[in-house]
Design a protein around this nucleic acid. Structure first.
Lengths: 356, 356
DNA sequence: GCCAGTAGGTAACGCGCGTTACTTGCGCAT
DNA sequence: ATGCGCAAGTAACGCGCGTTACCTACTGGC
């Protein structure tokens, strides 16, 4: 039996990688000692001298722990998974940033799985299942679901094997904890800002009235007006498609409907894209912003709000903070701690620019 | 010694997960047989009957393979890693989408690591190193580096232990393969479009002249003009900051400098943000787009280009395609295949809208 | 009646590491 | 001299799985 004893694809360029055994051998100690040093075990007793010898060996060999093996042995992966449509509809990409930053701080790794891979044609649900499945195969310790816009969603059944938190959406049928923007407070903030600038007659360019964003923001607007002893005039609330064109048309309707003295002096646009269209309508009529008409938006879509002329004052959706809070909640959940509430609301800060 | 023999955090909710052994036991076969069935080994001989019995057991128990253990045993992780600043500067997020889609098709998983974590304060380089290190600990089979804008970069030394491909950037000092947009051809495309519409006198709103995007796009513009027997008038090339304001100012300068009959009839803005500002300058002067002045942009920043009024005709940066090509190149590299070229150029398609 | 060949499996090793139980040497009080 | 306690380690098991080498019918050809 004169077989060569190199079962591993030995000739190839891929070197086997240095293991703990190599380090141990070089330092003249047992592998266990190396493991103790590398994982900083308090109680285990290793002399300062061998400790440094081991560390030197690690340096010299360029040893790098194998995360997979570590996960296998320790029964914990240090991974969270996030399944999201954001990768393909990047509007709310800051959620990922916030989540990732927070995960990094916690020494966790965030696995990002897209929820709408065109792997197989079919109803979207199946594809989310595939993404979830893939993440569970990686033995993630917790799952995050993130949506591009605030709405109710259905989460695959399999997800419930592991702690799960929803971000910018909520569980339409179950009891999963979620993190969503405080739309109502945001709407209030926007209108209060306009009132503070002296406006009494405020037009509202509304979104599709059934979505949570529209419901909440409008409710907040109503509250702010009520606090000032005013009522929201239903005639001044006009709906539009959530686009620049939609905003343009809605603004035209609202501006052309009244004689100058009855015309609203401010417009609350329920998102920045519509505000962008409203700008055009206002400028077309020879009116100035904010001199003749003040405009306030919502969402803080940087690419629009910061580049419009004049720059758009708007209420920001706290994507990054929601992402971070999602990871924090997940950490609490996996640690077995009770969570604060089923649904956590995150405030929407006002961003002052130049349109009010 | 009446110790309880449950070393695992047994009381907790976290069940141990069903393993291959469980499946084997339930199907009344050896674990090896299960492994053979699950990995679809061609040569191994398993009767059709036991095969279905095993599959039934898998279903019944809800068995899910442990990716980490599989990676450990098979010495291949099926992971690629991508290091990128895109997560925090989402302009080019489509690179991730393209890469991820392609990875998914290849049954690979893409680990996304942000390159600018504020983990420790210090020069950016160190942080990229940390991200790279973390990915290598996961034993990724290949590395991708993606930048938000086309430029030269320095890649951490450690990255070179594994096949590496750069996307939307290139190795400033070494020989790593890269995927970048064909800026020159894109510039040519833009100007050819304007020429085709009959324009002879074309103003160019330039970026910082030293960056690859500016150099390439301008060179392409020059070529297109030369093909038509024209020369690029240096006076008509005005630089500006890469913002809406910068575009506004540059457009003002260019529009106010000439009497009407000498005024350029078209503006080639080297990015869409500047085009956005140019729109304002044009409209302010009572001119129409594209009637009096045609405008063409570059980058195809959806949020701007598709929402400007009129919608902006522009040349798109092929982010998604570059991401996909990056993964394909990586696949070739890890398979030991030779790659096509050190630097692959990807074409920039024209997106016709309404501003020309 | 015997051997070769094949279908249908199984035992056992190793991947790299965490962890527990155990061993060894040594100083010190009795 | 003996026993005790502690510092400083080490041997060995198991995590879940891929893989190789082997084993046991059973069939067919001569």
């Amino acid at each position: 039996m004169a077989k060569t004893t190199t079962p591993n694809h030995a000739g190839a360029a891929r070197q086997r990688g240095v293991t703990m055994n190599d380090v141990a051998k070089r330092a003249g100690v047992s592998r266990t000692a190396v493991s103790f040093v590398l994982s900083n075990r308090e109680n285990a007793s290793i002399s300062e001298e061998t400790r440094t010898r081991i560390n030197e060996a690690v340096q010299a060999l360029g040893y790098r722990p194998n995360a997979g093996a570590r996960a296998l042995a320790s029964q914990r992966s240090d991974w969270y998974g996030i399944v999201t449509e954001i990768v393909t509809a990047p509007f709310a990409v800051d959620i990922i940033k916030g989540a990732q930053d927070q995960a990094w701080l916690d020494r966790k790794f965030l696995l990002i799985a897209p929820s709408d891979q065109a792997d197989a044609v079919g109803p979207n649900q199946g594809l989310e299942d595939a993404a979830t499945e893939k993440l569970l195969e990686q033995r993630v310790e917790g799952l995050l679901y993130a949506a591009t816009f605030h709405r109710g969603v259905h989460v695959p059944e399999t997800a419930k094997e592991v702690p799960t938190v929803l971000i910018n959406c909520f569980d339409a049928d179950g009891k999963l904890p979620s993190i969503v923007p405080d739309e109502r407070a945001g709407g209030r903030t926007a209108v209060e800002r306009l009132l503070r600038a002296g406006h009494r007659r405020i037009g509202v360019i509304n979104l599709d009235p059934v979505i949570p964003a529209a419901i909440g923001r409008l409710e907040g607007a109503r509250e702010a007006l009520a606090d000032a002893g005013l009522e929201l005039d239903p005639e001044l609330v006009v709906p539009g498609y959530a686009t620049a064109d939609g905003g343009y048309e809605a603004a035209c309707r609202i501006l052309d409907r009244y004689p100058q003295e009855d015309r609203p002096t401010a417009l609350f646009c329920l998102n920045d894209r519509m505000a962008m269209g409203a700008y055009d309508a206002i400028k077309e009529r020879g009116l100035t912003i904010p001199g003749d008409i003040a405009v306030i938006g919502f969402d803080n879509q940087e690419l629009i709000a910061a580049y419009l002329r004049p720059k758009l004052t708007t209420v920001a959706l706290p994507f990054e903070k929601m992402g971070a809070l999602g990871v924090q909640t997940l950490a609490a959940l996996t640690a077995g701690q009770p969570i604060i509430a089923d649904q956590q609301l995150v405030g929407c800060p006002l961003l002052e620019r130049s349109s009010v």
